[in-house]
Simulated assay, not measured.
Amino acid sequence: MAKILISPAKYVQGPGELAKLGEYAAKFGKKALILITSSGYKRIGKVVESGFAGVPCEIIFDYFNGECCRKEIGRLQEIVRAQECDMVIGIGGGKILDTAKAVAFYEKTPVLICPTIVSTDAPCSALSVIYTEDGVFEEYLFYPSNPDLVLMDSEIIAKSPVRLTVAGMGDALATYFEARAVKAKGAVTCAGGQVTGAALALAKFCFDTLMEEGVKAKLALEAGALTESVEKVIEANTLLSGLGFESGGLAGAHAIHNGFTVLEECHHMYHGEKVAFGTITQLVLENIPAEELETIIDFCIELGLPVTLKELGVTEVTEEKIMAVAKAACAENDTLHNMPFEVTPESVYAAIMAADRYGHYFLGE
């Protein structure tokens, strides 16, 4: 099987770049549907509008309904057709961006992705995570190509809640460990081939960047400072993790995240927060050396990422609940089977319970 690496056509990162969106968009079409939240429009709508002033590209805003689900995608498709839009622009968080990609795919238009947070590695990818209207994971929707443009305004991102950037580091933390597992298995990646050396190197660089810059970036953001550490973490959360997970592959961490979506008490947690705990669980499944496991758990604790079930929102832990998570994680169509050894609901259950106990231990509880 061939080795495949895929990426967005163009990636732009820097302070003030959102004000140039009109200039970029005009190269792709004449009329854009811009998907954004109402609160997002209040914060940055005027910046976007000013960037389209004097540009031969008309824009129409529509507010996102909150879930990347089939109903919302269909609603927006109707708007694209009725308004005769020839491109779709998503501005906001992961679910908005995934929805914009889905709408553009079905309507056969270019898609421009403009994250205002870096809480997931979704922006660069040629896929969307589709949920039910109630927020339960349903499926991955894969596309034949990546976004035409990913535009990161680091000045806007630096003003977002620190917890969101930390959640993005939790998502990015899984990148190297999942790519390493997929490589060992010889499994097929999200890109449709085997892992390239370049993808594995990007995934490792992502991990190294988090270890070196993650805590520094968090502290800088808490001080309201856009430093080089923050810029490096924005790149790690978005570009390095995005290319690394897609061309490197997904394995245990994300499947375990998907398992936790069956528990309603976890729905308030961010994707990357659940992935961080999923990463620890995957490493328990792999039985990595104690020193390495301690390094990862300590890193999560220092950032404020969840390392126990209680921190994930599961205040009443029962065998029934955790086995439901384990069974969902082992679903036939999920990526847990990309691990280089047999995984069963029973082994995942045991790993979750052990990971929870390790978390309590390192927290001193």
Rank of each mutant, 00 (worst) to 15 (best):
S229A: 05
K42A: 10
F28A: 00
G135L: 10
F299V: 08
T132I: 15
D86T: 13
V182D: 07
L76N: 11
N65A: 15
V230T: 10
A9Q: 05
G66W: 12
C124G: 00
Y41T: 10
V284H: 14
P306Y: 14
L200N: 11
L151Q: 02
M211W: 02
L240D: 00
Q77W: 06
A276N: 09
F137G: 10
A236N: 04
E291D: 14
A225F: 00
I156L: 04
L33S: 02
I36E: 00
E213V: 05
A198S: 14
A187Q: 04
E292G: 09
V136P: 08
E155G: 09
A217Y: 02
G16M: 09
V103F: 02
F207E: 14
K327N: 06
A324G: 11
E346K: 15
P8F: 00
V88G: 07
P123Y: 01
A184C: 11
A122N: 10
I301H: 13
Y270H: 15
A329R: 01
A187G: 10
A331L: 07
S160H: 08
A203T: 12
K46G: 15
E78L: 03
F52H: 12
M269P: 04
K310A: 13
I130L: 03
K204Y: 07
A354M: 10
V111T: 03
N146Y: 01
Y361S: 15
K216V: 04
S50L: 10
V233T: 12
A100M: 07
A236Y: 00
A100Q: 11
P115R: 00
T335F: 14
K10V: 12
N287K: 15
H271R: 10
G22C: 07
V284P: 04
E23D: 10
F260R: 11
S7A: 08
T120I: 05
L141S: 13
P345W: 01
A122P: 04
H360L: 05
P15F: 02
K46W: 14
M353V: 02
A174G: 12
D134I: 14
R357Q: 05
S160A: 14
Y11E: 10
P306H: 11
A355Y: 00
A122M: 05
N338Y: 09
H337Y: 02
I234H: 13
I79K: 13
I73T: 15
P289R: 04
T227W: 03
V314K: 03
K71V: 14
L33Q: 00
R163W: 11
D148Y: 06
A355S: 04
G244L: 09
T227N: 09
F277W: 05
H360W: 07
L239T: 03
V275H: 13
F61H: 09
E155I: 01
Q282I: 15
T189V: 03
D98H: 10
Y358G: 09
Y106G: 07
A324V: 09
G92V: 13
V150C: 00
